[in-house]
Design a protein around this nucleic acid. Structure first.
Length: 375
RNA sequence: CGGGGCGUGGCGCAGUCCGGUAGCGCGCCUGAAUGGGGUUCAGGAGGUCCGGGGUUCAAAUCCCCGCGCCCCGACCA
C-alpha cells in the first residue's frame, strides 16, 4: 500500500479526511451555487448501483414508480400545519417566472406529500382502490445552513415512497416493512452496520405520527441518519381530503406512509469503509470491481500483455465490472495509487513476468500484502 | 444563524507584518529516455492576486465597504 496517501489521517481530523477523499476519489465537484454538489460520473455510478438494487426491492414489495412535479403551490404546502411549520424555513420559493411576478409563489419541493396527495386523492374512490403503493426517484431542495458533499446538500437526489391504506394497522405495517427493506439494503449491499428504531417526538418528520429510522454507525463513532420511514396516520389525508368508501359504504380518510433514502447513503458508504488510503468500496456497489493494470516495456510486451488483459476481461464478462487501465503515460505505481484511493476492491497486475509464469498478481484493496494467484 | 479559518494559473500553497518586475510544488502541453508501488531530464503554455472604492509616484501587500468558500456548533435525508 502507499505509505503516504496525501490525505489527512482519519484519526487526526475525520471531517478533513472526508472532504479530501470525496475530491480525491473524483466523486463530486463543487458548483457555483452554494451548497449544491456536482456528482461526477464515478460518484453517480455508485448512485446508479444503489438505485437499481433499491428499485428492485421496492418492486418486489409491490410498489410502482411514478413522477410528480418539481413545483408545488405555496398554498398546498400550507395545508398541513405541522408540515409547513417544519419545512417552510428550508424551502426555496420561486416568485418570478416568464419575466413577471407570479400570482402565487411556487415552492420547490422539499418532499412531495403536498404534491402527490391532492392529485392522488382523485384516484381513490373505494376501498378497492387501496392500497396505493407509489415510489418516485427525484431531486428535492432544502435550504440547509451548512452543507457537506453527499451528507447534507441544498439539492439532493433521493427516492420517496408514498402509500395510502384503508386501515391504520396496514399503514403501520408498511412503515415498518420499508424500514426493514432499508436495513436489508444497508446490510447486504452496503455492508454498513445500522441500528433501527423510532425517533423522538422532536426528531419526528413534520406531520408524521411516528418516524422510524436507520442510524448507521460511522468510523468516527458518530451515527448517521441513513433512512427514514414515517407512519403519517391520517394527518395528510385530512389536510388533502383523501377519502375512500368502505365496504359498509362509509367515507373514511386513508392512512398514509412515506419513506426515503438519499444520496446521503453514499456519504455513509464513504465513512463506513474508507481509510487513510482513501475510498474503499464494497464490491456490490463498486463501479469497477476489478481494475486490470497491464505492465510492459517494449511494444511486443505491450501487445502480449494487453491481449492477456482482454482475455481476462472477457473471462469475467457478465460476472464482474472490469476496467483495463491501459493509459500510456502513467507508470504502474501511479495507477495502483490512483485506484486504491478511488476504492476499487480488486486489482489484477499483468506483466511480462506473469505471462512467463502463466499467472496474474491479485491485490485486494482491504489488505496490505500481495497475494499471488493463478488465473 | 453564532464562532473560527481562508480567498493569489486547473489543484495545493508562499509572498501581505515591513508597498517596488507574479513565485513555488503538483497537474497540463512537446520531445527523449523510462516502465513490477506516486518515473526522469529538457523545453513550454497558463494569472482581472474574490469584487468595488480609497491612500500613494507605485497596492496581492495599507485603509474602508461588500461577496464567496471551508470547518465547528445549533437544525436537518
Amino acid at each position: 500500500m502507499a505509505e503516504d496517501s496525501g490525505l489527512t489521517p482519519q484519526a487526526e481530523d475525520f471531517a478533513a479526511w472526508y472532504t479530501e477523499v470525496v475530491q480525491a476519489a473524483r466523486l463530486v465537484d463543487y458548483s457555483p451555487v452554494r451548497g449544491c454538489m456536482v456528482i461526477r460520473p464515478y460518484g453517480y455510478a455508485i448512485w446508479e448501483l444503489m438505485q437499481r438494487a433499491l428499485d428492485d426491492m421496492f418492486k418486489a414489495t409491490g410498489h410502482r414508480n411514478a413522477y410528480f412535479p418539481l413545483f408545488l403551490p405555496q398554498s398546498a404546502l400550507d395545508r398541513e400545519a405541522e408540515h409547513v411549520e417544519g419545512f417552510a424555513p428550508q424551502t426555496a420559493v420561486v416568485t418570478h417566472a416568464g419575466g413577471e411576478e407570479l400570482e402565487e409563489p411556487l415552492v420547490v419541493r422539499p418532499t412531495s406529500e403536498a404534491v402527490i396527495w391532492p392529485v392522488v386523492a382523485d384516484w381513490i374512490q373505494s376501498y378497492r382502490d387501496l392500497p396505493v403503493l407509489l415510489n418516485q426517484w427525484a431531486n428535492v431542495v432544502r435550504w440547509e445552513l451548512r452543507t457537506r458533499p453527499f451528507l447534507r446538500t441544498t439539492e439532493f437526489l433521493w427516492q420517496e415512497g408514498h402509500t395510502a391504506h384503508a386501515r391504520a394497522e396496514e399503514a403501520q405495517e408498511e412503515a415498518r416493512r420499508m424500514l426493514g427493506v432499508y436495513r436489508e439494503f444497508m446490510d447486504d449491499w452496503m455492508a454498513m452496520p445500522v441500528v433501527t428504531g423510532e425517533k423522538t417526538p422532536s426528531e419526528r418528520f413534520a406531520g408524521a405520527e411516528r418516524t422510524f429510522s436507520c442510524e448507521a454507525l460511522m468510523r468516527d463513532n458518530k451515527a448517521l441518519q441513513a433512512g427514514t420511514s414515517h407512519d403519517l396516520g391520517q394527518n395528510f389525508a385530512r389536510a388533502f381530503d383523501v377519502q375512500f368508501q368502505t365496504v359498509e359504504g362509509r367515507h373514511e380518510h386513508v392512512w398514509n406512509t412515506s419513506w426515503g433514502v438519499s444520496t446521503r447513503l453514499i456519504g455513509g458508504l464513504i465513512m463506513t469503509h474508507g481509510d487513510d488510503d482513501g475510498l474503499s468500496l464494497p464490491p456490490r456497489l463498486a463501479p469497477y470491481q476489478v481494475v486490470i493494470v497491464p505492465i510492459w516495456k517494449s511494444n511486443d510486451q505491450r501487445a502480449a500483455v494487453l491481449e492477456r488483459a482482454d482475455e481476462l476481461e472477457a473471462g469475467l464478462a457478465g460476472r464482474a465490472r472490469v476496467h483495463i487501465d491501459d493509459r500510456e503515460h502513467l507508470t504502474p505505481g501511479a495507477k495502483y495509487f490512483e485506484w486504491e484511493r478511488r476504492g476499487v476492491p480488486l486489482r489484477l497486475e499483468i506483466g511480462p513476468r506473469d505471462l512467463a509464469k502463466d499467472q496474474v498478481v491479485l491485490v485486494r484493496r482491504v489488505e496490505t500484502e500481495d497475494n499471488r494467484k493463478r488465473p
